[in-house]
Amino acid sequence: MLAAMLLLSPGAWAQERFITLASTTSTEQSGLFGHLLPLFKAETGIDVRVVAVGTGQALKLGERGDADALLVHDRAGEDKFVAEGFGIDRRDVMYNDFVVVGPAADPAGIKGRGVAEAFGRIAAAKAPFASRGDDSGTHRSELRIWKTAGVDVKAAGAGWYRELGSGMGPTLNTAAGMNAHALADRGTWASFKNRQALTILVEGDKTLFNPYGSILVNPARHAGVKAADAAAWHRWLTGPKGQAAIAGFKIGGEQLFFPDAR
């Protein structure tokens, strides 16, 4: 038993330097980290261990000091996180955009419209809509769009608005199964394989802009935070090398994330 514990202790398991990065399912499932992390490790020798959860949960992990750095996408939540002293030095990293996917037959007639109008039409047609419902960055954005569209999904959503409480991929799986609409980040959609009858119906609207921020967990609040190595990651990601690596990540020739650190 002791031998088993010893064998499984983190020291024996992996000798390398590492930090824990709490990030979102959208970045992990798009394959971006598979592209970035080997480059960073080759340069610094630091391993980045990614725990991919929704932005709400990632912020929670940071609050409790269970991650050393965050890469998330909910500007309002990020600013609150920093203002409350849980994180320091928030920086812009990159952006991509959301797309509205739905049945190719377009039952609500939303193809090519503005996103708020499209959401209004989905509600009017009571066309099925699959919501993340998990307090993620994407879910928070979706709720803002419903607000702009003047639709109260809590009151009017019976029968067509489904809160799934799952990550982006599972939500798309369910949407494909129900032939429902969904708001998805372009990265996850581009690498998603089980699309069935779904296709992009709305894209390019300014409100679909989806910016990502990098935040260091405040080492003053938790003794175990690996401040120096996390700062090295933070600087690399927002520096010229990290930014170039982000721009170089493509799926099927399509660039998925656009660097915008200043």
């Binding site: 514990m5 499984l8 983190p10 725990v51 409790r64 000091g65 175990g224």
Partner: peptide, 17 residues
């Protein structure tokens, strides 16, 4: 095991242990 929890100092969260 969380760093904010009672055994946080052991650094065991997110490990096989």
């Amino acid at each position: 095991l969380s760093r904010a929890g009672p055994l946080g100092e052991m650094g065991l969260l997110f490990t096989p242990t």
